[in-house]
């Protein structure tokens, strides 16, 4: 057991029994995690990146002692997640994005104070931290506002603050920017970066399905899909994997009947991955090619299908491409919109 590891999982597995219409001997099971091995060092800001249903939240819940693994071992600061529950809870905190919950009739301060007490903080420390954190996220003036009177965005900020009130060693952030507007999301990311900078021995495990967020924040990333870990490295190294490949965005005229990714990969040797999005009257192709000169074959293929080129762009690999390369489909169509919107506003 390496004491420098903040988080360690060993063949971690989780199976959910699905409740459905009850028929005997017909209990359906869903494998949410399948042999996940993670090693996260102290001081790392580590990201779990994956599409909806990949198993990100399941990993976090197991590590935060809310859920038992079906198989394998999970450790937080060397402590076993199934046995050393109380000891782990003293050292961790967890915040889920979109978390607008809380006792509506308490004020922001009272709510945070209460959680501070559950963590065993004394009064003076609790107050100091509450004031400081509320200041940082810019809701100090709402200290005495009842939670029920807060907008959902502000509630989310309050819950975010709750995650840091106990000065935890390990913080689990499950999609922390989910549902936040562009500025608020940037604030949250800024806070996490600053906190890590101020506390270099602390660890954050963050899940997201926003590529840009993962790229911007994380020291290292694991890409997870359907309960399996597909890759784990720094964002740079992950992108570097695609260094030899060439990545093109093509906008073309209608591709004729049923354009499919598989057909494209089959028809043109050297096409490693393709995603195809049909959009009002034209088609967008995202291609990962084994090398650049495959492009001429692609263009010939398009001409044979009666389509014509509208625009062509060669670009640097992004995490999105890494994901497509590994999984064979895009992470999430919405992701790109989110990222674009943010750039436009920023």
């Amino acid at each position: 057991m390496d004491t420098n590891l903040a988080i360690e999982t060993n063949d971690l597995g989780r199976v959910y029994r699905l409740r459905g219409p009850k028929r005997k001997g017909d209990a359906k099971q869903l494998v949410a995690l399948d042999g996940v091995n993670l090693e996260i060092r102290r001081g790392e800001l580590f990201g779990l990146l994956g599409p909806n249903g990949a198993g990100k939240t399941t990993v976090i819940k197991i590590l935060a002692t809310l859920l038992l693994p079906s198989s394998g071992v999970g450790r937080v600061e060397g402590l076993d997640v199934t046995r050393d529950v109380q000891e782990i809870r003293r050292r961790i905190s967890m915040v889920s994005g979109g978390e607008t919950s809380g006792y509506g009739l308490l004020t922001v301060e009272e709510n945070l104070w209460m959680f501070a007490r559950f963590y065993g903080l004394d009064n003076v420390t609790a107050r100091k931290r509450i004031d400081a954190l509320l200041e940082v996220v810019g809701i100090a003036d709402r200290k005495r506002t009842k939670i029920s009177d807060l907008s959902t965005g502000l509630r989310q900020k309050m819950n975010f603050v709750r995650g840091f009130i106990s000065d935890p060693n390990v913080v689990f952030l499950d999609e922390p920017t989910l549902g936040l507007d562009v500025t608020a999301a940037r604030d949250v990311r800024g806070f996490v970066k600053q906190w890590m900078h101020d506390h270099p021995d602390r660890t954050v495990l963050l899940t997201t399905h926003y590529m840009a967020e993962a790229d911007e924040l994380c020291d290292r990333l694991a890409i997870i899909d359907r309960g399996k870990l597909l890759a784990c490295d720094t964002p740079e190294n992950l992108k570097h994997r695609l260094q030899r490949e060439a990545i093109f965005n093509l906008k073309v005229g209608p591709l004729g009947p049923k354009p499919s990714r598989d057909a494209m990969i089959e028809a043109v040797p050297g096409v490693r991955q393709a995603t195809i999005v049909e959009q009002n009257g034209h088609t967008e192709l995202n291609l990962i090619l084994a090398q650049e000169d495959v492009l001429s074959n692609v263009l010939a293929h398009l001409t044979r299908r009666g389509s014509s080129l509208i625009s062509l762009e060669k670009r640097e690999p992004t995490l999105e491409d890494v994901f497509v390369d590994l999984v064979g489909r895009r992470l999430d169509v919405d992701t790109s919109h989110h990222a674009e919107g943010e750039h436009a506003a920023g």
Binding site: A64, R89, I92, E99, S101, Y103, G104
Partner: peptide
């Protein structure tokens, strides 16, 4: 109602 069960049960209370 308050949806705080998760928040509570990750504290050492």
């Amino acid at each position: 109602h308050y949806r705080t069960l998760r928040q509570l049960y990750t504290t050492p209370m």
